Amino acid sequence: MLNNKKVLVTGADGFIGSHLTEELVRRGYDVRAFVYYNSFNSWGWLDHSPSDIKSSLDVFAGDIRDPYGVKQAMKGCDAVLHLAALIAIPYSYHSPDTYVDTNVRGTLNVVQAAKELGVSKVVHTSTSEVYGTARFVPITEEHPLQGQSPYSASKIGADQIAMSFYTSFQTPVATIRPFNTYGPRQSARAVIPSIITQIASGQRQLKLGALTPTRDFNFVLDTVDGFISVMNSEQSVGEVFNIGSNFEISIGDTAALIGELMDVNVEITTDESRLRPEKSEVERLWADNSKAKEMLNWTPKYGSKEGFCKGLEQTIEWFKNPLHLAGYKAGIYNI
Rank of each mutant, 00 (worst) to 15 (best):
K75R: 13
V70Q: 05
N297T: 03
L20T: 15
A162Y: 00
Q198H: 05
I199G: 12
A174H: 08
N242V: 04
V230K: 06
N4K: 13
V9Q: 02
V123W: 07
D78P: 01
K329E: 14
D222L: 02
I16A: 12
P178R: 09
F241G: 02
L83E: 15
Q170M: 10
M295S: 01
A330V: 01
D52E: 12
P96K: 12
V137M: 09
K5Y: 02
G331N: 10
D288H: 06
H324L: 01
R26T: 11
G238N: 03
K207N: 03
S92C: 07
V110P: 02
F60Q: 06
V237P: 11
T10N: 07
F227H: 15
P213G: 02
A84S: 13
I258K: 01
I268C: 02
T197G: 01
V137I: 15
K310L: 05
A190C: 09
T167W: 11
Q160F: 00
A292P: 14
T197S: 05
V104Q: 11
G17N: 13
T175I: 14
K155M: 06
S164M: 08
L211S: 14
S49R: 01
L312Q: 08
Q186N: 04
F40D: 09
S201N: 13
V282Y: 02
T167H: 10
D288Y: 04
Q112N: 15
A134K: 03
I53Q: 11
L24K: 08
F179H: 13
A88H: 09
R26C: 01
I87S: 10
F165H: 05
R284D: 00
Y328G: 02
H143D: 14
V282T: 15
K329Y: 08
L323S: 13
I64D: 04
S55V: 03
N321E: 13
K115Q: 07
R177S: 03
V123S: 05
G244Y: 10
P322Y: 07
V80Q: 10
L8M: 11
S273T: 15
N41L: 10
I332D: 08
V220Y: 09
N103L: 11
A134R: 00
N246K: 12
E239P: 03
N3C: 06
C309N: 07
A61V: 02
E116L: 07
R276M: 14
I161D: 14
K75T: 15
V220G: 07
M1R: 12
L81P: 14
S92K: 06
T102V: 14
I87A: 12
L325N: 05
K279N: 14
T299W: 01
A190M: 13
V264I: 08
L86W: 10
L312E: 09
N103W: 00
F319E: 10
D263C: 11
R105F: 12
E23P: 01
Y182N: 01
T214Y: 10
Y68D: 15
L83Y: 06
A162S: 14
M163K: 04
E283Q: 06
G69M: 08
L257K: 06
A134E: 03
G28K: 07
P50K: 12
D30H: 13
P178S: 15
I196K: 08
L117P: 07
E116S: 15
L81S: 04
V70F: 00
A255G: 00
I176F: 03
L46P: 07
A292S: 15
L108R: 12
T181L: 06
H94V: 10
G327F: 02
L57D: 03
L86N: 09
I176W: 02
R26N: 11
D63P: 06
H94D: 04
V35Q: 01
G331W: 02
